[in-house]
Design a protein around this nucleic acid. Structure first.
Lengths: 197, 197
DNA sequence: AAAAAAATTGAACAGTGTTCATTTTTATTA
DNA sequence: TAATAAAAATGAACACTGTTCAATTTTTTT
């Protein structure tokens, strides 16, 4: 066990714990027991648990980007947007616990460093979608197109928080995939109309 | 100080604390100090802190419904949907800390009682919107109309979580009100198109 | 006024994040 | 290689969290 790999070992072990037991299970002591490193070592490596979660979250965003980027050259712009959405849903459903943590981290976090570290990853993903948007809505000027894109992306992103829990199950019988796809396609149809005006 | 009002006093005092200091500040001991009742009394009254938060949250949903219900008879169906949305945003921005708690409660909550208690309030609000939807999209059959309505309402609801924090500020310069209104109107435009197909 | 019932209390328990003097390990020097 | 210096790892201890429940206080009934 190479000593330089402490960070890596802790991150990997922590990721396992989150995936298997849920985000609530990730505490300094449980991570300590599971990894074999002392609580103090965790703090030497990460400063505090918020930073540890931060690392987990941008790893998650990196993984999501990698999945979406594979679809970069698939189909028409319209098909691609649907593929992106489906892949996004699949990713979230396959990684419920990790994605839950992405959404619910800001609870413990006081400072604002949060956004800065996430930003690059979120922007990367946005750029994938923008490329499809450009092809699909050539007549919408860039500033407005960016705006519409951000609204759609933020909507799907915030909606995805509810894909990780069964909170909505008693409210609507709608399938989670259909929910996102209906939002996407209705929104795109609306954009097509508003483009013509 | 009437003894029968312990619950009420605690709920009111707790609500003040949440509004002023934020949801994170609401702990059994802080509520105890602020209210003058002992920690044990809080537990006698509410069983646990989750139930206390539960009460706070359905009060918040009741308040929201009351605000929206006032607009029941205003303008055209289309105007009314925009009014509802604006009022919703106003309410959320005026009650950021309370609304934050509505969204982030499920963290501590293991059982599912949550959904049941909230459900009636959320359905009430949905019915307001459905009434406007019925007038606006007479040609969409009821089952599909309900579906579209739920998708829109869930989207705005989940989006509203980000109105209570500045998480999005570094991602998009878009005004929070514009964000919601653009989502609403693009979505409605899309529905109008899809209605004709 | 005495006895019974009910309500209130807060110290104590197990858990959380976090710190930091002490110990152990590693690297450097003689 | 042995002694010394530097670095890294440790876990008991602190302040906080939700929660419990025997002991106390208050209220009601007799």
């Amino acid at each position: 066990m190479n000593k330089d790999n402490i960070q890596e070992n802790l991150v990997n072990k922590g990721r396992e714990l989150i995936k298997e037991k849920g985000a609530e299970f990730l505490t300094a002591r449980k991570l300590s027991e599971a990894s074999g490193y002392s609580v103090g070592t965790i703090y030497n490596q990460f400063g505090n648990m918020d930073n540890f979660v931060l690392i987990q979250n941008y790893l998650t965003l990196d993984n999501l980007y990698a999945r979406l980027a594979k679809l970069r050259a698939s189909g028409t712009a319209y098909q691609r947007l649907n593929l992106y959405t489906q892949e996004f849903i699949d990713f979230v459903l396959e990684n419920k616990n990790l994605w839950f943590l992405v959404h619910n981290f800001h609870l413990h976090n006081n400072n604002r460093r949060f956004s800065k570290i996430y930003l690059r990853r979120v922007v990367q993903i946005t750029q994938l979608v923008e490329s499809a948007f450009k092809a699909l809505f050539p007549d919408i000027p860039l500033p407005e197109r960016i705006l519409s894109l951000q609204v759609l992306w933020i909507s799907l992103f915030s909606l995805s928080a509810f894909l990780t829990t069964d909170t909505l199950d008693s409210f609507s019988k709608i399938n989670k995939r259909s929910l996102c796809e209906l939002l996407l396609n209705t929104y795109l149809a609306g954009m097509k109309v508003l483009e013509k005006l």
